[in-house]
Nucleic acid binder design. Sequence first.
DNA 1: CAATACTATTCCAACCATTGAAAGAACCCT
DNA 2: AGGGTTCTTTCAATGGTTGGAATAGTATTG
Lengths: 276, 276
Amino acid sequence: MTVTPETETPPARGKRPKQGEPVIDRALSLLAVFSDRRRALTLSELARYADMPAPTALRLIARLVAWGALERLDDGRYVVGVRLWEVASLSPRGHGVREIALPYLEDLFEVTRHHVLLAVRDNEQAVLIERLSGKDATEVAYRVGGRAPLRSTAIGLVLLAGADQQFQETILKRPPENEPGVPEMPEGQLRRTLSDVRRTGIAMIRRTVPSRTVSVASPIFDAQGSVVASLSIVVPDGSTPPNVLAPAVRAAARAVSRNLGHQAVVSADARTHSQG
Amino acid sequence: MTVTPETETPPARGKRPKQGEPVIDRALSLLAVFSDRRRALTLSELARYADMPAPTALRLIARLVAWGALERLDDGRYVVGVRLWEVASLSPRGHGVREIALPYLEDLFEVTRHHVLLAVRDNEQAVLIERLSGKDATEVAYRVGGRAPLRSTAIGLVLLAGADQQFQETILKRPPENEPGVPEMPEGQLRRTLSDVRRTGIAMIRRTVPSRTVSVASPIFDAQGSVVASLSIVVPDGSTPPNVLAPAVRAAARAVSRNLGHQAVVSADARTHSQG
DNA sequence: CAATACTATTCCAACCATTGAAAGAACCCT
DNA sequence: AGGGTTCTTTCAATGGTTGGAATAGTATTG
C-alpha cells in the first residue's frame, strides 16, 4: 500500500511568524536597526536585527531606498540616506533648537574652550543635539545624535527636573541605576537635587569615568515656560571651579531661552534695584 | 429561484481613488509634506498635501508618532520628531561628512569671516549639510537642510562636475534654467566650465540676487576618488578677490578629502622638486 | 576546481492588514 | 443656535502584503 507522504503535514505553511504587524512599524524597525556601531548594513543583517524574513525586508527596503530614506552603497550595503536627513533637519526639537542655540554655544565655547553640549529629552533619555569640542578637550562619552541617561548626567538632571510631575515620579520610583564613575543617588537625595536644580537653574555632577570631569548644566525654556532643552559644559575636574562656570552656563542658557520667546522672571532683588 | 436585487450595483464602493499604493510610500509621502515653510501641520493639512483621506492619514500618522518619527504638539499639530532626527544623524552623507569636515570649515571661517558652506548631491540638486555664517555676513539664500540648484551655484557646479558621466549628460541636455541674478550658460559653455572645474578643482560664480556675491567652491573626494561633497565660500562681490580665496578653499577641501582617506595626486612639479 | 555556506533575489497563492465612506464627536466661528 | 471645519471611530470589502520555497549569485574552504 502506497501512503502519500504529505499526510502528516497539514500546517506546512501555517507557521507564519510575526505576520500581522503593521507595515509601517516594520519599516521603522528597519530604520531603528541603524546605530552608531551599525551605520552600513547588509540586507541579511537588517533582516536579522529587525527580526523579519529576508524577502520581506528586501521589499520594504526597496521602498525606503526609492524614496531616499536609505541609500545603497556600491558594495550592496545600506546606509541612512540624505533625504531622511533633510526631513529630519526640520525637527523643531532637533535642528530647530540647535540653530537658535548655536551662536550662544559658540560664545560659551570660545570663552571656555571646553566641551559644550546641547540636549533635549526623548522619553527616558537625553538626546545630544550638538556638541562643540576643542581638539585638546577631555574625552567625552557622548556623540551628537547619541543618548545619555537622565539621572547620572548634569544635562540629564536638568531635563528631568523640568519634566512634567508625572514623568518625574515614574523615574524617581525606579531603583537607582548603577553607572560606573557616578555616585548613585537614592530617591530622597534625588528629589532634593531636582528641587535644587529647579530653584537655582543649575545642575552639577562629578564623574570619574571615562575621565575625572565636572559637568555644569542649565535649562533652556520656551515661550510657555517649559524646559525644552539643556545646555551643559564639561571640564576636567580641578580646572575651572564649578561655581565660576555656573554663571556663564546660566547666562548662555537664558540667552537661548530669550531667543525662544521666554520671558524670564526677574528676581525680587533686581526689581527692587530698578525701582530704587 | 429568487434573484438577488444587487445585480445592477456591483461598483457600489468601487470608486476607491489611489487605493493600492504601498503603505510605506504613503507614510513617506506624509514625511515629505514637511518643508522649511511647513514645520508644524494639522492632520487635515497633512492629509490634503499628501493627497489621502483623513482617516488614512490619521492611522499612518499614529504609527509614526508611536515610533517617534513625528511628534504631536499641544495644539494638535504634528512636527518632525527627535527620533527621526536621531536616526538621520547616522547618515554618512549627512552628518557623517559634516563631522569630519567641520573643523576645517571652522578654520576657513575663522580666517575669512564669510559664509562657509558644505553640500552633497542628492539627485539633481545640492543639499546643504552645514553652513557657518558670521552675524555680519552677507545675506545668503540657503539654509542647512535646504536645496540649491546644481548649474547656477559654485557649490553645485563642483558636484555636477564630479558626478558620473551619464548623469552629467542628462543635466547638460536640459534647457538652461533661467535663474535670476545668474548669467545662464548654454550647453557648450557649461561643458567647458565643468571641464575647467575638474582640471582646476575650483568653481566660481557671481550672483547679483539676492545680493552681489562671489562664490568659490572646491570638491571633496573620498578614498575611491569620487566627489562626495563640495565646499564653498560666499563673499560680497568686491571684497576679497576670488583668486585669493581659491587657494584657501582648495586647501580646506583637500584637507577634508585626506581625512576621508583620499590619496591626492601629487603634481609633476612637486614630484620633481622632492626628487631634486 | 568542486564543495560548502552564505547572501541576494524572484515567484506566487493565501490571507489579513489596510482601506475610506459614513457617521458621529468636538470645536470653532458668527 | 447653526453652519462649517476638523478630528475621530466604525466596519465590511479587498488588494497589498506576506514568507516559504526555489533560484541565482558570491565568498570561503578543502
